[in-house]
Amino acid sequence: MYTRTADTKTADRIYDPYLGLYIKKLLPDPGIPILRKIADKIWTPIYTVSGSEKRLADTLRQNHISNYYPRICSIISNRKYENKPFFPGVVFAALTAEDRKIMNENFLVREIPEIRNSETEEHIFADICFMTMAEHISRFYPFTFEKEFRCPQLAAWKVTPMTIDGFGDCRFVSNEEENITQIYFNFKTIAKIIKFNLTLYQFRSLLVSKVL
């Protein structure tokens, strides 16, 4: 249950009117990019050899190609954490046809899939927007992988879906009786699901700090 140990105004706390007390303020990581659609370019996953993601991202930057190399904080063992590639072997880039040609000739590139319709393009962009959200959350609450999405069907559980432009799949599953919230990010582009387990107090700190 909630405690009132945080019920004091300090520089690192923010007032939560829902709880009626000051809670820890979470600051977004400035190293995580704010992604935007770019005219005449398509955000596309570029597949490389696992372990070469940073080198590929650097090469894209040298060629003035906007890219996103997602890194996320995960649990290793015994409460040890590590920032590592979100999806090993994948970097996202906003590409033109000419960019594709340049990158296809780079030895680091294994495959650049062809994006054939606007719906797939929207799915990819929604997925990478969710990735930035998951990256921010992981800085405070490291994630765990789930093989499949299992949504509790008990009456006490409330499921709230979130979409971006009608695409993507992010779900908040909460139970006030058990003081728990689960956040599921279902990344269809890469076919992975990431799950965060939070207390309602932690979840409120994300909302009030506007990290989500």
Rank of each mutant, 00 (worst) to 15 (best):
Thr8Asp: 07
Thr10Cys: 13
Arg13Lys: 15
Pro17Asn: 08
Gly20Tyr: 06
Ile23Met: 00
Pro28Glu: 03
Ile32Ala: 04
Arg36Asp: 08
Asp40Glu: 10
Pro45Ile: 01
Thr48Tyr: 01
Val49Arg: 05
Gly51Cys: 09
Gly51Met: 03
Ser52Ala: 12
Arg55Ala: 08
Leu56Cys: 04
Arg61Trp: 08
Arg71Lys: 13
Ile72Cys: 05
Cys73Glu: 13
Arg79His: 13
Glu82Val: 07
Gly89Ser: 05
Glu105Asn: 12
Glu105Trp: 00
Pro113Lys: 05
Ser118Lys: 10
Cys129Met: 14
Phe130Glu: 02
Ser138Phe: 09
Thr144Ala: 08
Pro152Gly: 11
Pro152Cys: 10
Ala156Lys: 06
Ala156Ser: 14
Lys158Thr: 15
Thr163Lys: 11
Thr163Glu: 10
Ile164Asn: 03
Asp165Gln: 11
Phe167Cys: 11
Gly168Met: 04
Asp169His: 11
Asp169Glu: 14
Cys170His: 07
Val173Met: 13
Glu177Ala: 15
Ile180Val: 15
Ile183Gln: 03
Tyr184Gly: 14
Asn186Val: 13
Lys195Ile: 07
Asn197Ile: 11
Tyr201Arg: 05
Arg204Thr: 02
Arg204Tyr: 03
Ser205Lys: 02
Leu206Lys: 02
Leu207Ser: 04
Leu207Met: 09
Ser209Ile: 03
Val211Asp: 05
Leu212Asn: 09
